[in-house]
Nucleic acid binder design. Structure first.
Length: 109
DNA sequence: CTCTTGACTGAGG
DNA sequence: GCCTCAGCCAAGA
């Protein structure tokens, strides 16, 4: 099978699955890694299908480190709880020291 | 094919 | 620093 057989969504899932424990990244970073810097919205859109998979979607936030996608989780503060469980400090839906926990796939991967 | 939607981002006021 | 507007791109109806 060709490596290009993977759809945009599948690529997003692949990258998101490789996010290390205790680290977070942004939609734009993933999109940039996929060669679609302008498709950051598509990354988030793709995450809609991340449920039921082994995708740590809670490690993916917007460029400001804000938990914009928390409303898509089961509870209202589930996403924050998961992040805090990994040692990440979250306050008011915003990750503290975001730059410190930021994981860039284009550099790390 | 056309229109709408969206877990985004950058620029401007 | 906060709010608003516009651009971007893929999937679904």
């Amino acid at each position: 099978m060709k490596s290009e057989t993977l759809n945009f969504f599948d690529k997003v899932y692949d990258v998101a699955r490789q996010i290390p424990f205790g680290r977070v990244t942004s939609y734009g970073a993933i999109a940039n890694y996929l060669g679609a810097k302008r498709s950051a919205r598509m990354v988030g859109y793709a995450m809609n299908g991340s449920h039921g998979k082994d995708i740590p979607a809670h490690r993916v936030v917007n460029r400001k480190g804000l938990l914009t996608g928390k409303h898509h989780f089961d509870g209202t503060n589930l996403m924050q709880q998961l992040l805090e469980n990994e040692g990440i400090v979250v306050m008011d839906n915003q990750i503290q020291d975001f730059d410190k926990f930021f994981w860039d796939p284009t550099k790390e991967l």
